[in-house]
Simulated scan of single mutants.
Amino acid sequence: MKMFLNKVSHYLPKERVPNEYFEKVNGLSDTWIFERTGIKTRSKAGKEENTTTMAVEAVRNAITSLPFDIRDVDLIVGASYTPYDTVATMGHVVQREFHIKDAQVVYISSACSSLVNALEVVEGYFAMGKSRQALVIASEHNTAFSDETCEKSGHLWGDGATALFISDEPLGEKPAEILSVYSRGLGHISKGPEGVYLTPGREGLQMPDGRDVFIQACQYMRVALEEASEQCGLAVDDLDWIIPHQANHRIIKNLAGQLSLNEDKIFTNIRELGNTGSASTGICLSQNMDTIQKDALLGITVFGGGYSAGAAILRF
């Protein structure tokens, strides 16, 4: 059973919130924020936008160059921890918007590692023979739930969405074979569910212990990437490009140091967009597709609050 990424797209809201905004809100300066996070601005959804509308736009941005009819999709997997509606999920709205009448639709959440878990769901459906043409959507509306006055994490969050079209055969101009997918729940370690949490209608999106998140993310993003590489007979050194979850630039630098990687091999967008959650790696991949050459090996590695981790290896 094989899986191929045949198209990736993204959607970003127009608004950018600069660091200077937070000096008025919670007293944190541009210099303080940038030195600790690598963030200069973050994307923010408009008043009429939400997780679902951004998901729809990410899919719409792929339509003109999709190498098959979108109505051929037979599985839609929505991934998010900031849903607009938990009943009529983004997948159901996308199904209706694009008239994908024969698709199964599911929704999953594993914090910022949700995109990798969505790939595993597709892998399972393909292996069972229940799907051949899948659409994975990751969309986050972090600013709908974050507390901007929070000095610990209110300045981190951005909004955006990504769409990945996956099939059991290579299609289009630059298909990528998904060589391996690895994930791991980590709720039992350290702070676990207390590290990052979102309680709608109560405290919202909070990260009370950023230090612990930093430590665990640095370790388990490395472990996940090593495990995913080993699954397909590769070493991390064999990879031409890395896309880590865009949570904090210091985490990315630490990961590069652990793996002895040149930072030129790492794609990032956190400086402009902030932490766009589970959508971050897909957005970053979509933004850099023109840079990736044929036969290149690319690794995605993620860490999510709760905790969880995952990685995937792609060959273009």
Rank of each mutant, 00 (worst) to 15 (best):
K2A: 11
M3E: 03
M3K: 08
F4R: 13
N6P: 05
S9D: 02
P13S: 13
R16A: 03
R16I: 04
P18F: 05
P18T: 11
Y21D: 11
N26S: 00
N26Y: 06
S29W: 06
D30T: 07
W32K: 09
F34P: 01
I39D: 10
T41E: 11
A45T: 00
A45Y: 00
T53K: 10
M54I: 09
A55S: 13
E57Y: 07
A58R: 10
R60M: 01
N61Q: 02
N61P: 00
T64I: 00
T64N: 11
D69H: 01
I70F: 07
R71C: 04
V77G: 04
G78R: 09
S80G: 05
Y81N: 14
D85R: 10
V87D: 12
A88C: 11
H92I: 14
H92W: 11
V94D: 01
K101R: 11
V106R: 08
V106N: 12
I108C: 02
S109L: 06
S109T: 15
A111F: 11
C112H: 10
S113K: 04
L115Y: 12
V116P: 15
L119K: 03
V122P: 12
E123S: 14
G129F: 01
S131T: 12
Q133Y: 14
A134K: 06
L135K: 06
L135D: 09
I137R: 01
S139P: 03
A144E: 12
F145L: 14
D147N: 12
D147S: 02
E151N: 14
T162I: 00
I166A: 06
I166V: 15
S167W: 10
D168E: 13
L171S: 12
E177S: 06
I178N: 09
S183F: 12
R184Y: 08
G187P: 00
G187W: 00
H188D: 12
P193C: 01
Y197F: 15
L198T: 10
P200M: 05
P200N: 11
G201F: 09
G201P: 10
G204I: 03
R211D: 08
I215N: 14
Q219S: 10
L225Q: 04
E230P: 03
E230K: 14
D240E: 03
P244G: 02
A247M: 08
K253M: 09
L255Y: 14
A256P: 11
A256T: 15
G257D: 12
S260P: 00
L261E: 13
L261D: 11
E272K: 15
T276K: 05
S278L: 00
G282T: 03
G282R: 07
N288I: 03
I292S: 05
I292Q: 08
K294T: 11
K294D: 09
L298D: 04
T301Q: 03
L314C: 07
L314V: 05
R315T: 06
F316W: 13
